[in-house]
Design a protein around this nucleic acid. Structure first.
Length: 401
DNA sequence: CCTCCACCGGAACGTGAGGAGT
DNA sequence: ACTCCTCACGTTCCGGTGGAGG
C-alpha cells in the first residue's frame, strides 16, 4: 500500500491544533462589516455619489493613495450601501466595479468594455468583434437606463499606461454625445498619474478628488486588532506582536494590506511549528518568507527566454564580483542560446526584459553613463542568498546545465 | 567645451493564434 | 471560404543622451 509514509498524516492534520478560527479574515478579499479610520472618506464618497439615487448623474471622482490605504475597501463599502438603498427604493442603479489590472479580464480596451457588458448581463465574445461594436452596444444599453451608471475603475493607472487615455476620453465624453449617464470612479495608486493625462480627460475625470493618506502605526494597530480578534483564537497573538506588525508596515508607508499579510503568514508559521501563539520571531520569519517566495514564484512563472536572461546574469554574477552591464548580459545570453539551439532575441527585447526584472525586484538596474564608453544599465542582484541558490538550481535544471 | 560611445526607449510594424460575421 | 477583428510577443528603425576623454 505504501501507506506507511502517510500513515496518520491526514488524520493528524485534521486533529492538529491550529491558532486560526477563520483565516479568511486576514486575506485581501475579506470585506469587514465596518471600516475604521476611513469614516471621513466614506462620507465624502457617499455625498458625491448620492445624487444617483435621484436619477442625477454624480460627478466623476478620482481617488488616489498608496497601496493598502483602503481605497478599494472604502469605495466598495460605500457603493454597496448605495446599492442596498437603491434596491429598497426600487430605483435600479448600475454600479460596476472592475479591477483593470486583472490579467485577461480588463487590461485592454476591448476587454474592459467586454467586462462591463457582461456585468450588465450582455456577454460578448472574448475576441473577434471590433471594439467599436462593443462601445455601441454599451452605449445603447446604458442610454436606456432610467438611472445613472456608476463605473468603478480600480488601478486605472495601469490601464492607461497600457492602452492610453483615449479610453477614458470615450467614457467621460459619453454623456455629452449621447443620453447615457455614466459616472466614473477612478482609483489609482500612482499619485502623479493624473498629471500624465490629456487635459480634457483630466478635468472631467477629477471633478472630485479624494486622497487617501497612509495609515499611521496606531491606526494599523486598530485594524490588526479588529481582524485578529476574528481570525485567531483567544491568546494566540502574543503581547506586542500587533505593535510590531504595525511598526513594520508603517515603516514603509502605512500599508495595511502588508501588515495583515504579515500577521497571516506569521500565524501559518506558528501553526506549522505546532506552537500555540504568534511571537515576535514569527513576524520576522514571515517578513523574510514573503519576500523570498514572491521573487521565486515570479521567476518560475516566467517563460524560457526570461530564464535564459536571468541565467546569463547569474553566471556573470558568480564568476567575478564586478559590476554587470547590459552588453555583457547580452553576449552571455547569446552564447547560451547558441549552445541550446534557442533563437536569441534582439538586444532591444532583452532591454525590456531587464526592465521587467528590475520592476519585479529580481534585479536592481540603474542607468549610468560610462562617459566615452557609452550609457548602459548597471545591474546587480540584491536578493537574499537563499533565494539566489534556489533560483540557480531551478534554472540549471530547467535549462539543462 | 565638445565629441562620441553604447546603449536607452519610443514608435511603427510583423506574425501567428484566437475568433466573429457573411 | 473569406475578410476582418484583437492581442501577445517580437523585430526594425531611430532619435536621444550623461559624462570621460580628448
Amino acid at each position: 500500500m505504501g501507506g506507511d509514509i502517510l500513515s496518520g498524516f491526514f488524520e493528524g492534520f485534521l486533529t492538529k491544533s491550529t491558532i486560526f478560527i477563520d483565516k479568511k479574515v486576514l486575506q485581501t478579499s475579506y470585506r469587514p462589516q465596518e471600516i475604521i479610520h476611513r469614516e471621513q472618506e466614506v462620507k465624502q464618497i457617499a455625498q458625491i455619489l448620492a445624487p444617483a439615487l435621484k436619477g442625477e448623474k454624480p460627478s466623476n471622482v478620482f481617488i488616489y493613495g498608496k497601496t493598502g490605504t483602503g481605497k478599494t475597501l472604502t469605495t466598495n463599502y460605500t457603493t454597496n450601501h448605495l446599492k442596498m438603498v437603491s434596491e429598497e427604493k426600487n430605483t435600479k442603479l448600475n454600479i460596476i466595479y472592475t479591477n483593470c489590472k486583472l490579467k485577461r479580464t480588463a487590461d485592454t480596451e476591448y476587454r474592459l468594455v467586454a467586462q462591463l457588458l457582461s456585468e450588465l448581463g450582455k456577454p460578448v465574445p472574448a475576441t473577434g468583434l471590433p471594439t467599436e461594436t462593443l462601445y455601441r452596444l454599451f452605449f445603447s444599453i446604458v442610454e436606456h437606463q432610467p438611472n445613472p451608471t456608476i463605473l468603478i475603475l480600480d488601478e486605472i493607472d495601469y490601464l492607461v499606461s497600457k492602452v492610453g487615455d483615449g479610453i477614458l476620453y470615450n467614457f467621460t465624453r459619453m454623456h455629452e454625445t449621447t443620453n447615457a449617464a455614466v459616472s466614473i470612479v477612478g482609483i489609482s495608486n500612482d499619485v502623479t498619474f493624473v498629471e500624465t493625462l490629456d487635459p480634457r480627460v483630466r478635468s472631467s475625470l477629477s471633478e472630485e478628488e479624494l486622497i487617501f493618506a497612509p495609515y499611521n502605526a496606531l491606526q494599523i494597530q486598530d485594524i490588526l486588532r479588529r481582524r485578529s480578534a476574528l481570525a485567531f483564537k483567544e491568546g494566540a497573538v502574543e503581547h506586542g506582536v500587533v505593535e510590531k506588525c504595525a511598526a513594520y508596515a508603517a515603516r514603509e508607508h502605512g500599508d495595511a494590506r502588508r501588515a495583515l499579510e504579515l500577521l497571516r503568514v506569521a500565524g501559518e508559521i506558528a501553526d506549522r511549528n505546532g506552537q500555540p501563539s504568534i511571537t515576535h520571531q514569527h513576524i520576522d520569519s514571515a517578513e523574510n518568507k514573503i519576500d523570498r517566495d514572491r521573487i521565486y514564484d515570479t521567476v518560475v512563472a516566467h517563460p524560457k527566454q526570461y530564464h535564459m536572461v536571468l541565467f546569463a546574469i547569474f553566471s556573470l554574477n558568480s564568476n567575478n564580483n564586478q559590476t554587470i552591464f547590459t552588453g555583457d548580459v547580452y553576449t552571455i545570453y547569446k552564447k547560451l542560446c547558441d549552445n541550446s539551439h534557442l533563437r536569441p532575441l534582439t538586444q532591444r527585447r532583452i532591454s525590456d526584459i531587464l526592465n521587467e526584472f528590475d520592476m519585479q525586484g529580481i534585479i536592481t538596474a540603474k542607468i549610468i553613463s560610462k562617459g566615452r564608453y557609452g550609457r548602459t544599465r548597471e545591474i546587480s542582484m540584491e536578493i537574499p542568498d537563499e533565494t539566489k541558490q534556489r533560483l540557480k538550481t531551478f534554472l540549471s535544471t530547467e535549462l539543462g546545465k
